[in-house]
Computed example of a mutant assay.
Amino acid sequence: MSLDIDKPSRLFFAIADALRAVGPGLKVGGRQDFDGTFDQAWVLIAIERNAPGDRAHDGRIAHVLTLSLQIIVPPTLSNPGLAAGDLASVLKGLATDNRWGLPGSQCDLPMNIDALPSTLISGSQEYLAWTLSFTQTIYLGALLLEDPLGIPKFAKTWEVSNIDDPDQYTALED
């Protein structure tokens, strides 16, 4: 996978890859991937929301993504709800301070990490689960500091009439 983030789904796949690397004890995918088989515990990843945020210092547009990781363990365990809660705690530790291998200039650290008991309903079956949720900001799009030729430009707010007008920017001198 390219290190450059060009769409929100890159974060989804980066998280999935990081969870798979934790060990062979997890099945990782989206909600549509859950098939009800339990040779391993499941972690279902979803992007729940894409909210606006403050632009990055380089001008990229911020996407504040709300993500959820729903943890389901085999229902044959003596207490699947507690086992899912324990796994949620482990994943909470993994999510803390993790950019999932993505560049720091385009991916902030997770914020507002929270884990709650939940239920997954698949067909007529109900599964005790836990859902770990957090927000993570990614920055997409072109750098505003560069024109299409890649020449860094700047403008002094006190010298231009409109800071948002790219024609009022001048090239940086070497």
Rank of each mutant, 00 (worst) to 15 (best):
S78E: 14
D174R: 14
R99G: 01
Q125N: 04
I15S: 02
A155T: 09
Q168S: 07
G59A: 08
A41C: 07
I15A: 00
G101L: 02
I71Y: 06
F12K: 03
L120I: 03
L82P: 05
I138G: 07
S122W: 08
D97H: 08
H57I: 11
D35K: 01
E48D: 15
D165I: 05
D108C: 03
A142W: 12
G85W: 12
T157G: 13
G93E: 14
A115D: 09
G81P: 11
V160I: 01
Q70F: 02
R99W: 06
R55V: 01
I121F: 06
V43F: 15
D108P: 06
T131N: 03
D164H: 10
F34Y: 08
L128S: 10
T137V: 02
I71W: 03
I113Y: 09
D39V: 15
T157K: 08
A95V: 15
L77I: 07
V22E: 14
E173W: 15
D108G: 08
D54H: 10
D97P: 05
C107D: 00
L26Y: 12
M1E: 09
L132W: 12
K153L: 07
A129F: 09
P148K: 01
T131A: 04
W130A: 01
D54Q: 04
P80Q: 09
Y139T: 07
A171Y: 14
D39W: 15
G25H: 15
L140C: 01
R60W: 11
G81Q: 14
L128F: 13
A95D: 12
T96P: 02
G123T: 05
G123Y: 08
N79E: 13
L145P: 04
P103M: 00
R49Q: 14
P74C: 08
L144T: 06
P166D: 02
A14E: 12
Q40A: 13
Q32S: 13
A84L: 06
L11K: 02
R60E: 09
L44H: 09
S9V: 12
E126Y: 10
P24E: 08
I71A: 00
L140P: 04
I47W: 12
L67W: 13
I47T: 14
G81M: 15
L87W: 13
G101I: 02
L145K: 06
A21I: 13
T137R: 01
